[in-house]
Amino acid sequence: MIEGDEVSRLLDVLGNRNRRRIIGLLREKPCFVTEISERLEISPKAVVEHLQYMERENVLLWRTDERRRKYYYLSRKINVRIDVEDETLGGMVRSETETAFFRSVRLLENLFASRNYYLSSLEYIEHDIDAAIADLVSTSKDILDGETEITLVTALCSSALSVDEIVEITGISRDELVKSLARLTAAGIVSWNGQLYKVREKNGT
């Protein structure tokens, strides 16, 4: 059992909805960054930030596979139980408490319904993303130098990223990544603003 400051830190971790979703996913099995991002529809950059935060709080551990991808898993079993003691005599729930409870139930029902609606819409978007990635692969043969650069450009299409974030998301070694970024920058495919890399837009920015 944990207590004191450790309880407070764990509650801070669980206070974020996306961190709770990531923990729920990792309770099923270890996952790597891209897998978490795709399954939960969270940007890879945000996933990395949440994972690093939970790693600092000793909630997560990681291991690498033969492709140098980091697989994250829970450092311990997490079960949260909240006991609420009724302040009224005889265990009778006060009417305002009951009203607040059912209001929370209705709100949760509505939110789940909204989520299901948007998830059904996201299925079409995910299909289009898969098709666009396949198109990128087929049209990149004379432009990109192999799977590493395809993976790199695909990651940068999601958001502007730092070198550390790209390493975390893709599993590409830092030396290989630096060489690929230098080539892609020289070729005018990606740009760097001094901190982050991103895919160049049509106007060259």
Results as ranks from 00 to 15, higher is better:
V178D: 12
L74F: 06
D164M: 08
T139S: 15
I169K: 00
F101Y: 14
R106I: 14
A160M: 11
K141P: 01
E123I: 07
V80W: 09
V167T: 10
K141C: 05
L144R: 01
T88R: 13
C157V: 14
H127P: 01
S162Y: 03
I133Y: 08
E55N: 08
D135P: 01
F102A: 01
S158P: 02
S138D: 13
I150Q: 05
R183G: 02
D135A: 14
Y72E: 00
R56D: 14
L74Y: 05
E66I: 12
I150V: 15
E96R: 11
Y73M: 10
F101Q: 08
S75Y: 06
K179T: 07
T88M: 09
R68F: 11
N110T: 07
L107A: 11
I143A: 11
Y71L: 08
T64S: 10
E126F: 07
L60A: 02
R76I: 03
V137H: 13
I150Y: 04
R103N: 10
T88E: 09
L89H: 12
M92P: 01
G90Y: 02
E96V: 13
L181C: 05
G91C: 08
L111A: 06
V167E: 15
K141Q: 13
D164W: 05
E165H: 12
E57P: 01
E147H: 13
S121D: 08
Y117H: 10
E126W: 11
G146D: 04
T170Y: 02
L144V: 01
T64I: 12
S120Y: 04
S121A: 11
K179F: 08
L61I: 08
E109V: 15
F102H: 12
Y118E: 11
L74H: 05
S95V: 15
G90M: 04
A160L: 04
A155I: 00
V59P: 00
I82P: 01
L122P: 03
Y124D: 10
M92N: 07
Y72D: 01
T139W: 06
S173I: 04
D145T: 13
I172A: 00
R106C: 03
I172P: 02
D175H: 12
R81N: 06
S140P: 03
F101V: 13
R94E: 10
S75W: 05
R103P: 00
F101H: 07
R63A: 09
L122D: 07
I166W: 00
T151M: 15
D65W: 01
L60M: 02
R56C: 04
E165L: 04
I169D: 01
E147I: 14
S158H: 13
A155T: 00
S95D: 12
A100E: 10
T151I: 10
I78D: 01
I150T: 06
R183C: 02
C157N: 10
V80C: 06
L122V: 07
D128L: 14
Y71K: 01
L107W: 11
C157P: 00
Y124P: 00
S95E: 11
R63W: 06
Y72K: 01
C157W: 09
L89N: 08
E109G: 08
R106T: 09
T151C: 06
S162V: 04
R94L: 03
E123P: 00
L156D: 03
E66T: 09
V153Y: 09
S162A: 10
S158E: 15
L177T: 03
L108K: 14
Y117M: 09
L111P: 03
R56W: 07
L136K: 04
